[in-house]
Nucleic acid binder design. Structure first.
Lengths: 237, 237
DNA sequence: TAATATCTATGATATATGTCATGTTTTACG
DNA sequence: CGTAAAACATGACATATATCATAGATATTA
């Protein structure tokens, strides 16, 4: 009985070999032996909403695998405003960049809601990168996709007006997080967060959301946002 | 005598083993044998100003190594305007992303001035990626750096005003291309190109450059721009 | 559950940027 | 070298977005 309980606990702390989350990232390319090795030296932890995983300018010293929850990657601009560069979700890895270039983090990672993450030390990942070509290729593919996304964001920032960018964000959130049981978006962000993703003033984000409400595109209840007319949002320009 | 001449010609077409440009990119991680193999199947070509290497939506089917010249990577936005995402210079590789993800190009590559490039077929590069971990790691590092740069551009686009972004571009061009023998910037771009990098209307770019002239920060002669007060440009905000 | 802090909302106004029109200069090319 | 096409320049004006002020709603916690 003791052993059964212990196994359950260990399983709750999850062995990498059995973790399904890795299907969404480069870790799926690792063989059983490597997974067991990594499993032995990884640390799991839960991160509360608002907690910081790492700050801009700090060393990360490994990668985080997001088992659950959402995290924002942001950077302070010269004028002191936070710009959110990316939302990181279940299955994503963060910290690969600093790992590979051996530099301090360029971004700050803050939990948007309760998260479950695993931390894998740098040395273990580098070990696998140096031996496992298919792991490296997978990592390369992930970064290539991130880069494509980043390029598209640059174009949008440069060419689309704020209203359209905000509509795009709502559509993205809907596609990525879906709805909760009451048809509200599956992730809750403050208006300030919306502004920081779109790259505008908080008041402007609030104003445009109010306008969307008047136009029947969305409804809100506090921070909860419900999308009423997805097609209408797509037509915004 | 015949052999000497032949050697010179072959050398002008440059063997990868002897090419110094690769020092600036991931190809430096390849061993002599791989370089000889690649040298045998690469094609060199010169590209005239304004010519297109590849278009958004096309397959690239390999990577280009830039031996000389400058190239702009751009993307058309929904409103039909060109946004320049990156300037590619001597030593850079392009096409790695599409190669790794096996997707069509997200960007269009157009020569800004006369270029010398080598094209290496996809299969050869994939061969090396699958066998040479240090090559893969180098490629990963390059992409990680590109990604960091892209994130910084997103933040700047979102938070810095047009005037500051244009000043930043001038500073970047000065740092990257230096001056010609008459102290003009070492790369010549149209006002429209400046606008497409900054992400603004051509008239706005022209207006701000005129303002910089009046303030004694730069002088211009047609497309040629001379930086008179670098520190002044850095102070713009 | 009341009190407080934080977040949301909206008006008034300032500033930044885009658009259209038009004239001038530069560049490309026969 | 002259001419046409392209690029540059600038004014007038329209629109988008930011900022400041203030009120109201929501969330947090004692």
């Amino acid at each position: 009985m003791f052993y059964v309980t212990l196994n359950l606990i260990v399983s709750a702390m999850s062995k990498c070999q059995q973790c399904i989350v890795k299907q969404f990232n480069a870790l799926k390319a690792l063989g059983k032996e490597d997974l067991i090795r990594i499993s032995g030296c990884k640390t799991s932890k839960s991160v509360k909403k608002g907690e910081i995983l790492f700050r801009e300018g700090e060393s990360v010293n490994g990668i985080y695998c997001i088992k659950d929850g959402v995290c924002k990657l942001s950077k302070l601009s010269a004028n002191g405003k936070e710009q959110i560069v990316k939302l990181v979700v279940r299955g994503d890895l963060i910290g690969q960049r600093s790992l590979v270039t051996d530099e301090k983090s360029n971004l700050t990672a803050i939990a948007v809601n309760e998260m479950q993450v695993c931390f894998i030390p740098k040395s273990e990942v580098l070990h696998d990168l140096s031996r496992n070509a298919s792991f490296s290729l997978d990592m390369l593919q992930d970064m290539a996709k991130e880069l494509r996304l980043a390029d598209n964001i640059i174009v949008d920032m440069a060419q689309k007006p704020v209203k359209q960018r905000l509509a795009d964000v709502l559509i993205y959130l809907y596609n990525t997080f879906g709805n909760d049981d009451k048809d509200y978006l599956g992730v809750i962000l403050s208006r300030e967060d919306y502004a920081s993703i779109v790259g505008t003033a908080t008041e402007s984000a609030i104003r445009i959301l109010s306008q969307f409400k008047k136009e029947g595109l969305i409804s809100t209840r506090g921070k909860h946002i419900k999308i009423l007319d997805l097609e209408g949002l797509k037509r915004i320009e």
